[in-house]
């Protein structure tokens, strides 16, 4: 979906707040435990990072803009917990959590002694490709013009635009597939170079370019029409 999270190229959000306190990541006290909670549940195996992003993107557009980053995290976490049946709306609505709620299960429960190793290892989305890469560095490509209702990672500002494959990164879990069906469906991923003029017309900086990481299914040879 090309929802409100897809901000690249928009006007109207005002100046950048460059004066933040670099030592205070959590200006409001609730943000600190929420940060740890989201990472702990992210290690539970109940969902992957693509599903977590997709859940945040379901926040209603007006709420998204009227709220902060960790509000988006809360929304995504609760949406996933509800979807996976880990919690119920009734349990969430209770003023105090029930003393003996229905149990839930997760593939893993992260314990403190495991935290350093789990964070240091991470969870790469790199996978063995199903086939050879379709494109090579130097190839001219056009971004397929499409508006899928489900999760996708094409920024709206590059739809239909022509660029040049700059880097072939290898194959990675394909977000559109894994969110829609659970199938990791590994696809080749490329850094594609676009001139600012191609993306933004005469308002693009003539001495600027944008590199966008795009999976092969988002791309067509430049000579083909932008949609099927």
């Amino acid at each position: 979906m090309h929802g409100i999270h897809d901000l690249g190229g928009m006007h109207g959000f005002g100046p950048i707040d460059v004066h933040e306190d670099p030592h205070d990541h959590f200006p409001e006290p609730w943000q600190r435990p929420l940060f740890g909670l989201v990472l702990a549940m992210g290690a539970s195996g109940l969902w992957n990072i693509d599903m977590a992003r997709a859940a945040r993107e379901t926040m209603p557009a007006a709420d998204y803009l009227a709220s902060g980053y960790y509000d988006h995290w809360w929304h995504g976490l609760v949406a996933l917990l509800l979807e996976k049946g880990v919690v119920t709306s009734e349990e969430l609505a209770a003023a105090t959590p029930p003393a003996d709620p229905a149990p839930a299960s997760a593939p893993r429960v992260l314990h403190p002694d495991q935290v350093p190793a789990v964070l240091a290892k991470g969870a790469t989305a790199r996978r063995e490709p199903a086939g050879p890469p379709k494109f090579r560095p130097g190839d001219r490509v056009r971004v397929r013009n499409a508006r899928p209702a489900g999760h996708t990672r094409t920024p709206r500002y590059c739809l239909g635009k022509v660029g040049e494959v700059a880097l072939h990164h290898g194959a990675f879990v394909f977000p559109d597939s894994v969110v829609a069906t659970g199938d990791p469906d590994p696809q080749h991923c490329y850094a594609v170079r676009f001139t600012a003029a191609e993306l933004f017309g005469p308002d693009g900086d003539p001495k600027a370019e944008v590199m966008i990481d795009l999976w092969a299914p988002y791309l067509l040879p430049a000579g083909e029409a932008a949609h099927d």
């Binding site: 609730w30 940060f35 740890g36 990472l39 880990v86 349990e91 839930a104 314990h111 350093p116 964070l119």
Partner: peptide
Amino acid sequence: VDALIQLLARKGVLDPAAIDTIVAT
């Protein structure tokens, strides 16, 4: 946030002690 942490812990899908370790990291 506190209520959700308690709820998930009681359901057996969260060890709340992991939260402090993550934040401290």
